[in-house]
Design a protein around this nucleic acid. Structure first.
Length: 486
RNA sequence: GGCGCAUUCGUCUAGCGGUUAGGACACCUCCCUCUCAAGGAGGAGAUCACCGGUUCGAAUCCGGUAUGCGCUACCA
């Protein structure tokens, strides 16, 4: 029987979740789902100073938006709760105390100032920075003395001075570290909170996490973790470190690369299913050609073995393309529903909500295949809603035309449009095409002029459909205004 | 400074001893066409960072060099 797979996403609530973290969550989720295991959400709020109000909600909101559901977590509980570290402080204290009693950890009374000094000195002398282990072998008297001075100590891990620590990483293979390069890490801070290094071990053990899937930046602290598991008598989980995310310039993904938090992508009109698909391909691939995959396909094919070590770089252009693919594949009603909030948000304030859904329903099919993001929708459909069009009059005069010929063409067209029995796309086309021929104009010339008059733009959805949706009254009125301009 | 990792078309990538080095985005051309898209068909674009070695045979294995990046907190 296959061992039970339990993965976790353990973010610290420090703000709007970064795509890199969400990518990690996605991989952990995919792995759990692929193996019919459990996906656990745990909040690592042990850094009191960096805690941000509302961050947990933002986190859960983002995960929900992407459809990454969790089986156990702070909001729904589970058999291994609580799922918030600040509610588990006793557990860490107990572990720290045990380690001290066993001789695997010790109290350290060094001030942050002293630590800063020795670090600066080490750096100056081009030596590896790290704690100098001054408190490692303190006698009972010395300890008492420090206690009496009123210093609250931290608990440090007593790392073995020699030997090697090795572990097997699903992505990185066999990893080996010399113990003498390892620092005596702080386990319990002076405020009584554990550091990540202690808390994640205690919790991953107690929550029976089978696979620790996290970012590459943790690989250098993993030997400490392995040592801690051993010292505490725990069986270490499987480790899988994910390649880091970079911009296309190979540097750390940051603001200057564009959106970095998942909330921003949402605001910019990216679809959750496109984000999931795109994020899944950051450091993982199925084969040499498959790129478009549904959530189910991703779950079915995701394995850690196909995660690569090379940093994955975030290519926004490709995301745009993929998002466009997903938008085009949406059912028309779905596209409309999703676009609504963007229309309400971005349409000029003079366009008063509530918007007429009936009207929008006619417009949406005209732009669905023309947008890359939902945020493009208001932009492309603006002319359907506003009263007054603003454009450069020159645009009315198409190639090979003059002011006179344009006036004439618009004038005749206006009259025919006014008389047209039915104002639908088909009738419009049947009337306008011959009209162009009749006036000895190329279709592009006549239609171009009409397009500008009616939309204020040279690039717009197909003319006849656009006019049909706008309606006869609006079209005639806009043509009149165009004539006024000439 | 130490430790670790990486280096394949402009970009993202597949590749895990024998391939005409495959795909995608972007780009270009043509088709479709009332504009813009979308779609279709093509095209250009990679001496696989460099230098050695192993091998009948290396993008693939080994060593070195260079470059880039990550970690090196009482942050996670």
């Amino acid at each position: 029987m296959r061992p039970v797979v339990r993965t976790r996403f353990a973010p610290s609530p420090t703000g709007d979740p970064h795509v890199g973290n969400i990518r990690t969550a996605l991989f952990a989720w995919l792995f759990a789902r692929h193996n019919s295991g459990s996906f656990i959400l745990r909040i690592e709020d042990t850094d009191v100073a960096r805690r941000v109000e509302g961050a947990v909600e933002a986190l859960m909101g983002s995960l929900r938006w992407l459809g990454l559901d969790w089986d156990e977590g702070p909001d729904i509980g589970g058999d291994y709760g609580p799922y918030v570290q600040s509610e588990r402080l006793g557990l860490y204290e107990e572990a720290a105390r045990r380690l001290v009693e066993q001789g695997d950890a010790y109290y350290c009374y060094c001030s942050p100032e002293r630590l800063e000094e020795i670090r600066a000195e080490q750096l100056r002398r081009k030596q590896p920075p790290g704690y100098d282990r001054q408190c490692r072998e303190l006698s009972e008297e010395e300890r008492k003395k420090k206690e009496n001075e009123g210093i609250t100590p931290v608990v440090r891990f007593k790392v073995p001075l020699e030997g090697q620590t090795r572990f097997s990483d699903v992505v990185w293979g066999e990893v080996k570290f010399e113990n003498n390069t390892l620092d005596d890490l702080v386990l319990l801070k002076s405020d009584g909170y554990p550091t990540y290094n202690l808390a994640n071990i205690v919790d991953d053990h107690k929550m029976e996490i089978s696979h620790v899937i996290r970012g590459e930046e943790f690989i250098s602290t993993t030997p400490h973790h392995v040592l801690l598991y051993k010292a505490l008598g725990y069986e270490p989980p499987q480790f899988a470190h994910l390649p880091r995310l970079t911009g296309t310039d190979r540097s750390k993904l940051s603001k200057r690369h564009g959106a970095v938090s998942i909330g921003e992508f949402r605001k910019q009109g990216y679809l959750p299913e496109a984000m999931v698909n795109f994020l899944a391909l950051l450091g993982w691939s199925l084969d040499d050609k498959t790129e478009l995959m549904t959530r189910q396909e991703l779950i079915a094919s995701f394995t850690l073995e196909r995660v690569k070590k090379t940093a994955a770089s975030f290519n926004p252009e490709k995301l745009d393309w993929m998002n466009g693919v997903y938008i085009r594949s949406l059912a028309p009603e779905d596209f409309l529903q999703r676009s609504l909030q963007f229309l309400e948000r971005d349409l000029p304030s003079e366009v008063m909500p509530p918007l007429s859904v009936d009207y929008i329903k006619q417009i949406m099919p005209l732009v669905q295949e023309r947008v890359k993001t939902l945020a493009d929708v208001p932009e492309l459909t603006r002319f359907f809603f506003v009263d007054r069009l603003e454009y450069d009059t020159e645009l009315l005069i198409t190639k090979g035309m003059t002011v006179e010929s344009t006036r004439h063409a618009l004038g005749v067209a206006r009259q025919r449009l006014a008389e047209l029995p039915a104002f639908d796309a088909e009738s419009l086309e049947e009337m306008l095409r011959p009209l162009a021929a009749e006036m000895e104009l190329k279709t592009g010339q006549l239609f171009g002029t009409l397009r500008t008059a009616v939309t204020g733009q040279t690039a717009a959805p197909p003319l006849f459909q656009t006019m049909a949706v706008l309606g006869r009254e609006t079209c005639l009125e806009r043509i009149d205004r165009a004539l006024d301009r000439l």
